[in-house]
């Protein structure tokens, strides 16, 4: 079970490696793409104005130096789709990344791109992005036709579901799951909205809109109205948690946001291959703090520390017992008695 960290610049490599990152992933948006499509059409799931490298030279240095530290580097090509005009550009980019720069895997969402890359005989491996919304074993069996070495499960897949999936296909393909930082109120692969800076994320934008309820019609009692409003308030609070506690940090600068630390012992037992820390666009400090936290818990789990002690340590590391207790900050509901 590896710790997978985001990286957005060569200068972050040394500190992330020292903190315990065991795999790295990043994005790249070549200048030609930006010139052609502006900021409206993204090459990967992060805005080109943050979170992606923009030069092949820097990426090559990053990959070479990461390999010296025995860290593989994966690249996101995980836009939900590419048009016929874009596909040749993306295939050319994939060859460059794989054959010239030497990246270890490409992270792909679009089934068409996955199929095309599987035919290209690239040197690197293929990972299926969480944006592909792989929620069940049958979907993985379907995708195995295209030769991926890893499937990244969406955030919404529960511990019980992960256990079933790893049991069913864990011998055939690696399973990666979310561990820290970034939530999504929707099923990301089925959300057709943009996070473009002019409008912001749809989920958080909704929290500021005027609303009107119906409950089997527009007329209902004040009591029911209050009941519905309370639930909406709770939902908006949950969205705030999903959005990294309003993109906040603790007084010590540690990252808030969705977290799966308490589930690490269960995930290890299930045979999960990799734990993903989200946030290519985050500050170097947030990345560093995130890797340290996850690695601390992974080290204890690897050392055979009892599950309850690991959970206690995880909550201690988060330094926000009130948020842990809220129940809205967890990727996974952990049964502490199991």
């Amino acid at each position: 079970m590896k710790v997978l960290a985001p990286i957005a610049a060569h200068e972050e490599l040394e500190m992330l490696a020292a903190a315990g990152a065991e795999e790295l992933y990043c994005g790249i948006v070549p200048r030609e793409w930006l010139e052609r499509y502006t900021g409206a059409v993204w090459l990967n799931r992060r805005s080109p104005k943050g979170g992606s490298l923009d030069s092949y030279a820097e990426l090559k240095r990053l990959v070479d130096d990461a390999h010296k530290l025995h860290l593989p580097v994966f690249i996101t090509l995980n836009s939900p789709y590419y048009t016929a005009e874009q596909i040749p550009l993306v295939l050319e980019l994939a060859h460059k990344l794989s054959d010239e720069i030497g990246v270890d895997a490409l992270i792909v969402t679009d089934i068409n791109l996955l199929m095309r890359l599987s035919q290209e005989k690239l040197a690197c491996e293929l990972h299926v992005s969480s944006v592909a919304a792989v929620l069940n074993t049958e979907a993985i069996r379907f995708l195995l036709n295209f030769g991926p070495s890893r499937i990244i499960l969406p955030r919404s897949v529960t511990l019980a579901e992960i256990a079933t999936i790893t049991r069913d296909v864990g011998q055939q393909v690696e399973i990666e799951v979310f561990m820290l930082n970034d939530g999504c109120a929707f099923e990301e692969g089925f959300c057709s909205t943009t996070h473009h800076h002019t409008v912001g994320a749809f989920c958080t934008s909704l929290s500021e809109m005027d609303t009107q309820f119906e409950w089997a019609g527009k007329s209902f009692t004040t009591r029911r109205q209050n009941w519905l409003r309370r639930n909406l308030t709770d939902y908006r609070e949950w969205v705030w948690y999903v959005n990294g506690n309003g993109c906040g940090v603790t007084p010590k600068g540690l990252p808030y946001g969705p977290c799966g630390l308490c589930a690490v012992p269960d995930l290890q037992r299930m045979g999960v291959a990799s734990l993903k820390i989200v946030g290519r666009e985050a500050s170097p400090f947030k990345k560093l703090a995130s890797v340290k936290m996850v690695r601390d818990i992974v080290n204890r789990t690897r050392a055979g520390v009892p599950k309850l002690h690991v959970i206690e340590r995880a909550k201690q590391l988060r330094e926000s017992p009130e948020h842990c207790a809220a129940g809205f900050m967890c990727y996974y509901k952990v049964d502490e008695s199991a």
Binding site: S156, A185, F190, C191, F202, N231, D234
Partner: peptide, 22 residues
Amino acid sequence: ISTSRICMAAGLHYRKADKFQP
């Protein structure tokens, strides 16, 4: 527009800490 395994309306009948689970 969008869809989720987490349902706002389903939360109506849960206590707060148990709401909005996939």
